[in-house]
């Protein structure tokens, strides 16, 4: 196994860690934030997770150009959302999402 990429991993850590630490290391200063800012922070989680999921299934990049895409992954994600909302069980939702993808692709869907 090659270790050629270890220096790259260290560089990636060096640019990633500050983003991860900036809020947590400033935690004591959070008390001084206005209430509206705290409300904003509480909404970051749903917004960014939704953005991650939506961008992942709706946008594909071909030759460096992003384009809108419709595919079986939409159905998988929607099924997962419905099952998690209904049964409060993420594993069940993920299982259904994967099953839909496998069956759909066996049936020739993109």
């Amino acid at each position: 196994m090659s270790t050629d990429l270890v220096p790259l991993a260290v560089l990636m850590f060096a640019v990633t860690y500050p983003s991860r630490a900036i809020g947590l290391l400033a935690a004591p200063a959070v008390d001084r934030l206005p209430r509206r800012a705290l409300e904003y922070l509480q909404l970051v989680g749903p917004a960014i997770l939704a953005a991650l999921a939506a961008v992942n299934v709706m946008v594909t990049t071909v030759d460096g150009r992003p384009s809108f895409t419709v595919g079986l992954a939409w159905l998988s994600v929607i099924a997962c959302i419905a099952i998690v909302a209904w049964r409060r069980n993420l594993f069940l939702g993920l299982g259904a999402a994967v099953a839909i993808a496998i069956v759909g692709r066996l049936g020739g869907l993109p």
Partner: peptide, 27 residues
């Protein structure tokens, strides 16, 4: 179906954070 695991997990985890209209609109 490996490619649908990440977006499905993110969406499923998001559902756990939705506790009202504000979160729903933000999402």
């Amino acid at each position: 179906g490996i490619d649908v695991i990440f977006p499905s997990a993110m969406a499923g985890l998001m559902v756990g954070l939705i506790s009202g209209r504000r979160e729903l609109v933000a999402a």
